[in-house]
C-alpha cells in the first residue's frame, strides 16, 4: 500500500528528533574536545580538577545512597502490602499513593522538606520544643544525608511501582514446595525468594540510581551552592555563575551521559538474565 502521508509523519518525527535531540547531544561531544585551536583534551582534563572530581563524587555517592535506601524500603513496603491476608484496600491505597509520590519531585518537593525539617521547619521546631535539636545534633537538610532523605520521597515509591510485578510473579507453589521439603521462612527467602528477586532488585536499583544521578531541580532548590553536584555544576556553567568556559559544561555533560550509558547497558544485561525467571502464561 502506498502511503506518502505516512512517510511524511515518520519523516517529520525523525527530523525533529534529529535536530533537537540527537544533534544537541552530538554537539556536546564535539564541543567537549574542540577548543580555539582545534582538537584538545584540555576541557576533558578539567574534569580531573578538584572541584569537578568532588562534584562527581557527591553525585555518585548521593545516587548510590538514595538508590540503596529506595530499593530496601521500597521492596519492604511492596512485600508487606502484597502479603497474603493483607487487606485489599491497602493495595490500592499504596499503589495510587506511590504513583503520586513518584511524580512529586523537583522544587515543590524541596520546599515541602524545607517546611518540615529545614532550619525553620515545623518538625524541627516541634522537636526543639521537646528538647531534641536536630541541627545541633549534626543533621542538616542541606547535606548529602539530607538530600538522601528528600530523594527517598520519590525513590521509595518508584521502587514500589517497579518491584510489584516481580513480587506478583513469585508463585505460591514455590513457597509450598519449600515448606514441604522442610525449609523455614528464612531458608526460603535466602535460597529461593531473594535469588529469584535479585535481578529485578538490581535493575530497580539501577533505574533509581539514574533518576537520582540526573536529578537537578530538587538539588538546585535545596543546596544553592552548599554541595556541588554534577547537575548543579553544569547549570552554574550555563548561567555564567562561574568563570568556566561552556566547553567545560559540555565535558561535564558528556561525563554524565557516559555514566548513564554504562548504567543502562548494565540494566539491559540484567533484564535479559531476569527474563529467565519470567513465568510464561
Amino acid at each position: 500500500m502506498k502511503a506518502p502521508i505516512a512517510w511524511l509523519f515518520i519523516g517529520a518525527f525523525l527530523l525533529v528528533s534529529a535536530i533537537f535531540l540527537v544533534a544537541p547531544t552530538a554537539m556536546l561531544a564535539v564541543q567537549a574536545v574542540i577548543g580555539d585551536d582545534g582538537l584538545t583534551l584540555e576541557y576533558v582534563q578539567t574534569l580531573g580538577s578538584y572541584r569537578y572530581v568532588k562534584a562527581f563524587e557527591h553525585s555518585l555517592y548521593l545516587s548510590v545512597l538514595s538508590a540503596t535506601v529506595g530499593v530496601i524500603a521500597g521492596a519492604l513496603i511492596a512485600f508487606a502490602m502484597l502479603k497474603p491476608g493483607a487487606p485489599r484496600w491497602l493495595r490500592s491505597v499504596v499503589t495510587s499513593f506511590a504513583a503520586v509520590a513518584a511524580n512529586f519531585a523537583g522544587v515543590p518537593l524541596a520546599f515541602a522538606f524545607i517546611s518540615t525539617v529545614g532550619t525553620l521547619g515545623l518538625l524541627t521546631s516541634m522537636l526543639k520544643h521537646i528538647g531534641v535539636d536536630l541541627y545541633a545534633m549534626g543533621f542538616s537538610l542541606f547535606s548529602i544525608p539530607g538530600l538522601t532523605l528528600v530523594y527517598s520521597y520519590f525513590q521509595i515509591p518508584l521502587m514500589v511501582i517497579i518491584i510489584i510485578p516481580a513480587f506478583e510473579a513469585m508463585q505460591p507453589a514455590w513457597r509450598e514446595a519449600a515448606e514441604n521439603l522442610g525449609a523455614t521462612g528464612g531458608q526460603y527467602w535466602r535460597m529461593v525468594g531473594l535469588p529469584v528477586l535479585a535481578p529485578s532488585l538490581l535493575s530497580g536499583w539501577i533505574l533509581l540510581f539514574g533518576s537520582a544521578f540526573s536529578a537537578y531541580a530538587t538539588a538546585y532548590a535545596l543546596t544553592s551552592g552548599n554541595i556541588s553536584l554534577v547537575t548543579t555544576e553544569i547549570s552554574a556553567v550555563l548561567s555564567g555563575n562561574v568563570s568556566s568556559e561552556p566547553q567545560v559544561g559540555a565535558a561535564l555533560s558528556v561525563g554524565m551521559i557516559v555514566v548513564m550509558v554504562l548504567v543502562l547497558a548494565a540494566s539491559q544485561m540484567l533484564a535479559r538474565r531476569a527474563s529467565r525467571w519470567t513465568v510464561k502464561q
Binding site: 535531540l21 544533534a23 559544561g249 555533560s253 551521559i257 548513564m260 543502562l264
Partner: peptide, 10 residues
C-alpha cells in the same frame, strides 16, 4: 540517557 541538564547544555 541524556539528563535534562545535559540536553539543555547541548
Amino acid at each position: 540517557v541524556v539528563p535534562a541538564i545535559a540536553l539543555v547544555a547541548g
